[in-house]
């Protein structure tokens, strides 16, 4: 079993306009999806959601605000899972609710520390 970081990307700024009911309705698929991974004992860390606002720090004292010019979609959150292979990790990612709202999941194997 290896560990994989799943990075969720989506056009930012949607969540703030949601009502509590809408937010709740949005959360349920996430809770069910992550619960399903945890039920297989494959959830290493439930990770975090990220706020839309951010800073990008570059060389020579250059600090820019988000949203970011280089990437069209901002990182909205991440989790860490356990899987036998990159293919299995990708298969698990196919259930991610972000895909239903036009977002993407990037799957990357973690390199274990020596």
């Amino acid at each position: 079993m290896k560990e994989f970081l799943l990075i969720f990307r989506n056009a930012s700024g949607q969540q703030s306009q949601m009502s509590p009911e809408q937010l709740q309705a949005m959360m349920k698929p996430w809770q069910d999806w992550m619960g399903g991974i945890a039920a297989q004992n494959k959830l290493v860390s439930p990770g975090n959601r990220l706020e839309a606002d951010g800073r990008v720090v570059k060389p020579d004292n250059v600090v820019t605000n988000g949203p970011y010019v280089e990437i069209k979609e901002a990182v909205g959150g991440y989790i860490i899972i356990r899987a036998a292979s990159l293919d299995e990790a990708a298969a698990i990612s196919k259930g991610c609710p972000i895909l239903t709202v036009g977002g993407t999941v990037e799957v990357r194997a973690l390199v274990p520390m020596d």
Partner: peptide
């Protein structure tokens, strides 16, 4: 269901996985 989802995030156990399903 949501309580089991959270319980599993806290600590995996086969019984919780079955009950959650």
């Amino acid at each position: 269901l949501q309580l089991y989802n959270r319980l599993l995030l806290l600590e995996y156990s086969p019984m919780a996985a079955l009950n959650r399903t």
